[in-house]
């Protein structure tokens, strides 16, 4: 196995509430609470979780767009947790981002030429001219756009075309890591697969590592080699994409899987039955007021007393990854086995 390009170790990101005149101090929001993962070149790590689980905060922390509270981020072995100003430009050349909304993430007053080209000018010092034009054309070709797109403005393109431009813009600086934060979430399903294929081709051609963030477990599994499941700032389960999907060890992962509709009616009926066992009406706790124990305990169909008292540590799961759930450490120990049969028997017993 090659050395990882990106290593995230015990990352914490907390947003301190500011107190202002006539306003009571806002509590600290704990968006990310000690997550660790690594991505090798040529590989894709998928991060899934519902809105507010801290996925995008992880992305911003790695991109140096928000301050890290604790933990370490390493790029190619070098610490980049807090990049000093003079090293920022070199850092930006190595990590790039493709953001969620293809409409608001492109500047409406700039042509594709400028959108893709300004990174080339900034990082390679190539002023606008024939040489830069050649590079932009090559990048557009890489993402499957013809040269006529050079003069287009964002509003003249479809969502899929815009997202291709976003990818070309990220590729322009030849980064080692691209963070795709919900890069396909705003697109139609058919366009999603086109954009995903573009991402795959780009990875095959350049060897770039991807951090793919999404809330659709099916899509994330499809593109990722490894996945991590986030819940309220905790990485509750991580492992190989297929392993986590086929043998989910955490009840929350199982809930995410069950929430995706499937075409087979029998399987769909099974998933619906499974979904019934989760406490749908219960809101997840607020990240500014996290419980002492497992944050999923109040929605978990098989929660035990210990779950509200102690946050479980990571234990090895049978799919080869880790899970943070007391079912695997105490009480009816599953010891890394899949949680599905257990939830099912628990729900029928009720």
């Amino acid at each position: 196995m090659t050395a990882p390009f990106l290593e995230v170790e015990n990352l914490h990101v907390h947003f301190a509430g500011r107190s202002r005149l006539f306003r009571s101090a806002m509590p600290t929001v704990k968006a990310v609470n000690g997550i660790s993962f690594a991505i090798e070149p040529h590989r894709t790590f998928g991060l899934v979780g519902e809105s507010g689980s801290g996925k995008s905060t992880v992305a911003r922390a790695i991109l140096q767009l928000t301050d890290v509270t604790a933990g370490t981020i390493r790029l190619d072995g070098a610490d980049v947790t807090r990049v000093p100003r003079e090293a920022e430009l070199a850092f930006r050349k190595r990590v790039q981002a493709v953001l969620q909304d293809p409409y608001s993430s492109l500047n409406q007053v700039h042509q594709v030429r400028t959108i893709v080209g300004d990174g080339i000018t900034r990082h390679f010092g190539i002023k606008p001219g024939p040489e830069r034009e050649q590079r932009i054309l090559a990048l557009l070709d890489e993402v499957g756009l013809a040269g006529e797109f050079l003069d287009r403005y964002p509003y003249e393109m479809s969502g899929g075309q815009r997202q291709r431009v976003s990818i070309a813009r990220a590729l322009a600086v030849a980064p080692g890591l691209i963070i795709a934060d919900e890069a396909t979430s705003a697109l139609d399903v058919s366009i999603q697969s086109q954009v995903i294929n573009v991402l795959r081709r780009v990875q095959a051609d350049t060897g770039v590592a991807f951090l793919f963030i999404g809330h659709d477990l099916d899509v994330v599994r499809h593109v990722s080699d490894d996945v991590g499941v986030m819940y309220l700032g905790y990485l509750v389960e991580q492992g190989g994409a297929d392993g986590v999907y086929d043998l989910p060890a955490h009840p929350y992962t199982e809930m995410l899987i069950a929430s995706v509709p499937v075409p087979d009616p029998a399987a769909q009926a099974e998933r619906r039955a499974l979904r019934q066992t989760f406490k749908k009406d219960t809101e997840p706790p607020s990240p500014s007021d996290l419980p002492v124990g497992c944050p999923f305990a109040n929605r978990c169909p098989v929660a035990m007393d210990i779950c509200t008292e102690l946050m479980p540590e990571a234990t090895a799961a049978r799919h080869g990854g880790h899970v943070r759930c007391h079912l695997h450490t105490s009480g009816p120990v599953l010891a890394g086995e899949s949680v599905v049969p257990y939830i099912r028997s628990a729900s029928t017993a009720r």
Partner: peptide
């Protein structure tokens, strides 16, 4: 977001 993206591009 486009300014955020531009910041990320350095």
């Amino acid at each position: 977001r486009y300014v955020l993206a531009a910041r990320a591009r350095g």
